[in-house]
């Protein structure tokens, strides 16, 4: 028995270590290179840790120079080969806020509409539930790129181009089908006896959802919220077309702009990348325990 426990510990330790290196290594490198100067990050062999820590990139992001550019105040030189920061650096913070606002709104609305629909499909045995499920899912088989043009036309008709609202509605449509899917597969695992008991006690469908299904589905609900938030946070191609100025542009658009520009230093791009990772990581860590610690594992005995 002892050797068995030792083996288990060994396997767990080795797997955990490998996992940490693979998962956190690239991010650590991103953080490290965001604190290095351009000439340090292009060194061979690479500098694992910054030889000289510089916060230039972050300063440019958090304290962007607000100024009127005239002949006298202009910056000279082509920022291409480094040291100089892109003119769009000041857009990062507004974009961060846009991303956050859109992500939060999507996460909340998504949860509200998905849990009711998932309950209806998974629990209520009504005619046409299969059809409803497939209709919802089928909306996700078309590649996003194909939807951009018609969606742009719709949004223009509704005068919503360049608004965060356009992104919220779009991301809702993108995330809802899969969230419903997640919740259905979870609801179906909840023993049906609980449902029957609740209904026999005179619960309405709304009450059964509220008092039986939701409390038992916390891990799945949290996973759905995170899925919706992160999908919005990540999304690129819809935002690229639907938003064309900083009143509504999200982080991926601003960051991709730095990359596709001929005037940005690598270390600055890495710094922007770090900025983009921090908020969702904080959020994810706050919710993590609800998923992993399995609050409901004991409850679902049925």
């Amino acid at each position: 028995m002892m050797w068995r426990r030792g083996l288990r510990a060994l396997v767990i330790t080795v797997l955990s270590l490998l996992l940490v290196i693979y998962v956190a290594g690239p991010v650590a490198w991103l953080v490290s290179s965001s604190l290095q100067s351009e000439s340090d990050i292009t060194a061979v062999p690479p500098n694992w840790l910054p030889p000289k820590v510089t916060f230039d990139n972050f300063e440019a992001i958090f304290a962007p120079p607000k100024r009127e550019v005239t002949y006298e105040t202009r910056r000279q030189g082509d920022p291409a080969t480094g040291r100089f920061l892109p003119s769009g650096a000041e857009n990062l913070l507004p974009a961060l806020w846009n991303s956050f606002a859109v992500g939060m709104l999507v996460a909340i609305l998504n949860l509200v509409v998905s849990m009711t629909a998932a309950y209806a499909i998974a629990v209520i045995h009504f005619k046409g539930r299969k059809a409803a499920l497939y209709t919802i899912l089928v909306t996700r088989v078309i590649p996003d790129i194909a939807l951009i043009v018609p969606l742009f036309l719709v949004m223009r008709q509704l005068d919503l181009v360049n608004t965060r609202f356009a992104l919220v509605v779009t991301y809702l449509a993108v995330t809802v089908p899969f969230t419903i899917f997640i919740l259905i597969s979870y609801f179906e695992q909840i023993p049906r006896d609980l449902y029957r008991a609740a209904r026999a006690d005179g619960c309405s469908h709304w009450q059964a959802l509220r008092f039986v299904y939701l409390p038992l589905s916390l891990p799945a609900l949290v996973a759905s919220v995170m899925f919706a938030f992160l999908t919005s946070w990540n999304e690129f191609i819809f935002a690229l077309i639907l938003t064309q100025n900083i009143t509504s542009q999200t982080l991926p658009i601003i960051i991709s702009g730095f990359v596709m520009d001929f005037t940005t230093s690598f270390s600055f791009i890495n710094a922007a990348g770090v900025i983009a990772i921090v908020p969702p990581v904080v959020l994810a860590m706050m919710f993590e325990r609800y998923i992993v610690s399995g609050l409901t594992a004991g409850a679902v005995k049925g």
Binding site: V23, L30, A43, N234, I269, N270, E288
Partner: peptide
């Protein structure tokens, strides 16, 4: 707990940043 928090890092990385990061890691020169 720590491990399960760490594995959320990649998920929280926007795909644009993800692409950049790996491109930078694969760079033939640096």
């Amino acid at each position: 707990r720590l491990l399960s928090a760490l594995i959320l890092l990649p998920w929280a990385t926007p795909s644009i940043v993800n692409g950049l990061m790996w491109k930078w890691i694969y760079d033939p020169g640096y």
